[in-house]
Write a protein that binds this DNA or RNA. Structure first.
Length: 433
RNA sequence: GUGGAUGUAGCUCAGCGGUAGAGUCCCAGAAUGUGGAUCUGGAUGUCGCGGGUUCGACACCCGUCAUCCACCCCA
């Protein structure tokens, strides 16, 4: 009696009920449409990989978070913790079967065994899109333009893309004489927006001394327009250089495309992952920036070098769909819908079921989503069900209506009925509605 | 991984060392087939889980699981 197993899911893992899943799928469809519009093609890779593949270049933090175990054949395997590393392996393995430049999108779940928080889970979905095979400003810009289009397609009212170039930052570090501490410095600087200038300075001073800390703060100040910030960064970093030129090119393209308004040059964002080598970007929602970046990425010119001698420069970004959903929820504007049914064919007489099914078939043939209520019940209850499913209409035919040779179409929100002589007449009305 | 808060009906939440409550929702009826008002009646809980203290624990103690927040890191 009491030996039933308690239904539950692991910490950080979730079920998706229809309403949540319909919302998620709607977002994925918007992204898919965007990616295709920019010429990206889809790929997929295995959930499980050899641990050495995934962890080849991983730092200590990643290593701690990855789900790793021995499979039944004693192989050392791990679950993918992002889509970029598997993609690098994919490119190295299939370079001969592909073409360059190659632009792909990949929307799939990834796993990280870290602690949970709002919008942060152990199983979550990433939507990656990358362009591999070239190292040009145009490719960098394509990624940014795709982000911009994606935000628009997702119905985000306002978003800003913060961009920076690691190369410029590294030049600056070299000039300031603290290149040896670049990884730590990048990490501290990355937190500027979160911990404030004071604390950032303190941590930098601890790391590299007071003089260097002041220089770094001056460098990462930002905030007075893209071109002015770029000019100052470049000057402090030692003058004109190819990396600054890349940023200027990007800004030029953004201006030409009317996107410069959502572009911010933020010398303080660097991205934690160490495989980025060039431009990096993060995307923040104007309404709720504190939730963090909902789409981040950058240029990585050495990633596939772990798996191949062929040089495969790439640039890409990843949309955090779960974080986006959390943001929409926090903003109270998550789309609520009950289902896809537009017409519920009410079942008021079991002997007329063949007619109900025939009517439903006719509606579907015209592209109208409908379902037949599967048992004869009180109409009140069927209306309530129709409402749950988000149906706009109920199609009713009981003995009375049949006697009159009529079909009753009820507008559920207006609670108004109209009679029609045939299903075709009903279809005509629905197509006009 | 560290620290803090929370966990009671489907949902939102009260509660107290002595037999588990409200609102909402749900069900039935008033209206014997046409749902938003009203009225009447009704149903529902391993009080997250497991131990301990106690005559008695939903309450106190310990552990555990989950959620939220902060740190860390990141999407």
């Amino acid at each position: 009696m009491s030996d039933i197993i308690q239904p539950r899911v692991l910490k950080g893992f979730r079920d998706f009920l229809p309403q949540a899943e319909m919302e998620r799928e709607a977002l994925l469809e918007a992204l898919t449409e965007t990616f295709r519009r920019f010429g990206f093609v889809p790929i997929d890779t295995p959930v499980l990989e050899y641990a050495e593949i995934l962890l080849g270049k991983a730092g200590g933090e990643t290593e701690k978070q990855v789900y790793r175990f021995k499979d039944n054949g004693e192989r050392d395997v791990a679950m993918r913790f992002d889509l970029t590393v598997p993609f690098a392996r994919f490119m190295a393995e299939h370079a001969g079967e592909l073409y360059l430049p190659f632009r792909r999108y990949h929307m799939a779940k990834v796993w990280r065994g870290e602690n949970t928080q709002r919008g942060r889970y152990r199983e979550f979905m990433q939507c990656d899109f990358d362009i591999v095979g070239v190292d040009t400003a145009s490719a960098d810009f394509d990624i940014m333009a795709t982000i911009a289009q994606a935000m628009s397609a997702l119905g985000v009212p306002g978003a800003s893309i913060h961009v920076n170039h690691r190369g410029v930052f590294n030049r600056f570090l070299a000039k300031a004489g603290i290149s040896g501490k670049s990884v730590e410095a990048l990490r501290v600087v990355d937190k500027l927006a979160k911990i404030g200038a004071e604390e950032t300075r303190r941590q930098l001073a601890e790391l590299a001394g007071d003089t260097a800390a002041d220089e770094v703060l001056e460098f990462i100040k930002g905030g007075d327009g893209f071109e002015a910030t770029l000019e100052r960064m470049t000057r402090i970093a030692g003058g004109s250089n190819p990396d600054s030129d890349r940023l200027a090119e990007l800004f030029g393209m953004a201006t030409a495309c009317g996107l410069s308004g959502m572009l911010t040059l933020s010398p303080s964002i660097t991205r934690g992952l160490d495989y980025y080598t060039g431009v990096v970007f993060e995307t923040f929602l104007d309404e709720i920036p504190e939730i963090g970046s909902v789409c981040s990425g950058g240029r990585y010119n050495d990633l596939a070098s772990l798996y191949t001698r062929q040089r495969l420069p790439g640039v890409g970004a990843s949309v955090g769909i779960d974080r986006l959903i959390a943001a929409f929820e926090a903003l109270g504007r998550s789309g609520k819908r009950g289902g896809y049914t537009r017409v519920l064919v009410a079942n008021s007489d079991p002997t007329l079921c063949a007619e109900y099914q025939a009517a439903a078939s006719a509606l579907r043939a015209e592209g109208i989503a409908c379902e037949v209520y599967p048992e004869a019940k009180k109409l009140v209850q069927q209306y309530a069900y129709a409402e749950l499913k988000g149906a706009a209409f109920a199609l009713i035919r009981g003995p009375e209506e049949k006697g009159r040779g009529a079909w009753l179409l009820r507008n559920l929100s207006e609670r108004a009925n109209a009679e029609y002589a045939s299903v075709d007449a009903v279809i005509a009305v629905l197509q006009g509605a």
